[in-house]
Design a protein around this nucleic acid. Structure first.
Lengths: 191, 191
DNA sequence: ACCTGAACACCGTTCAAGT
DNA sequence: ACCTGAACACCGTTCAAGT
């Protein structure tokens, strides 16, 4: 019985998440899977929130983030990568969205988007634009994952969405950012 | 000791929510506030999710929803009304966003937005556009309420946002919808 | 540095039975 | 129609003590 390191706990937590879902990712269950009492986990993490933040960060770190391309394409590619990564793990969207909402962790997509937008000349509006993109991606991914998992569990109606529902919404937000960017460069008369 | 009706339970639940927060809105706590055993609540609601959906619906029904105006202004006004209503109750944003995400209840803002957008000529893209707006409003309101309540609890930094952070993000999404609407009317060559 | 043992203060939900 | 009483199967977290 070897002792566990912080990274072992995170790795096992991702396994439990993917195999049994977020509702079953409890301190007690995770301890049991590690062959350890639940209280032992508090040696590695201050509380469950902190642990979940580390799990979300690891999950995001495993993605291949695009780093090149014209700013709008790059921002769109970052969003698509994020969505794919969220959908790649059971309850991944809900986990990362939750962590993001309580303000610990899950900061990588935000930093990447702000960098892409700032390079693209969006300037001072980059933070608002980046957060608007993230609100869309998280909201859409949570919805989609809920529907996918309900359908997989044999729910009543499949409720098939448009072929590229995600792309349509993403296109709306990207187009909107291009509009405010153009307005900014003409001179901010409105604000 | 009068017996409770369904609507009494919902009204008391909103009180508990606003006074003590979502984390303290438990079946046991709510039962105690109503002078009743927790198990009595299951006479009125199948489970806690269903109860929360009814609470969210009641919270939304108390708003004054705009019903007139040019389509883009009206969509923006619906979003602003929704945001105000979410922020008007402690943890209101988190509650309604959660209910919305698990697919029961909280459908009124969606229906209102789809109606406004369809009238505005957005046509078949109205559902995607409405959901994109809602993802933004819920995500932004949850963020904002978290920050506001952390600041009110005496957190470290105020982290003051742009004066009209919400309006900026909303403007991005509305502008994006106007773009896809215009593209649609020129003829959908892209999709 | 990492873990045990034991406790504290809770949860949501079910169900037979009461009025 | 609405509620009680009692139970079932869990939670997160703390903390003194062990190795």
């Amino acid at each position: 019985m070897n002792r566990n390191h912080r990274r072992d706990v995170v790795a096992k937590a991702i396994e439990v998440l993917d195999d049994y879902g977020l509702a079953d990712l409890t301190m007690r269950r995770l301890g049991a899977e590690l062959g350890v009492r639940p209280s032992a986990l508090y040696h590695h993490f201050a509380d469950k929130q902190t642990l979940l933040a580390a799990v979300a960060d690891e999950l995001l770190a495993r993605a291949n983030w695009p780093a090149t391309g014209e700013w709008a394409d790059r921002a769109a590619a970052i969003c698509a990568t994020l969505r794919d990564q969220l959908l790649a793990y059971r309850d991944g969207a809900e986990l990362v969205a939750t962590v993001h909402s309580f303000g610990l962790g899950a900061r990588q997509p935000y930093e990447l988007l702000v960098a892409a937008l700032a390079e693209g000349g969006v300037g001072g509006l980059a933070p608002q634009a980046a957060r608007t993109l993230l609100h869309f991606v998280y909201g859409h991914a949570v919805d989609e994952q809920t529907h996918l998992q309900a359908a997989a569990a044999g729910a009543i109606d499949d409720d098939p969405r448009e072929s590229d529902d995600f792309g349509t919404g993403l296109g709306i937000v990207i187009a909107g950012i291009q509009v405010v960017r153009a307005a900014r460069q003409l001179g901010p008369t409105g604000a």
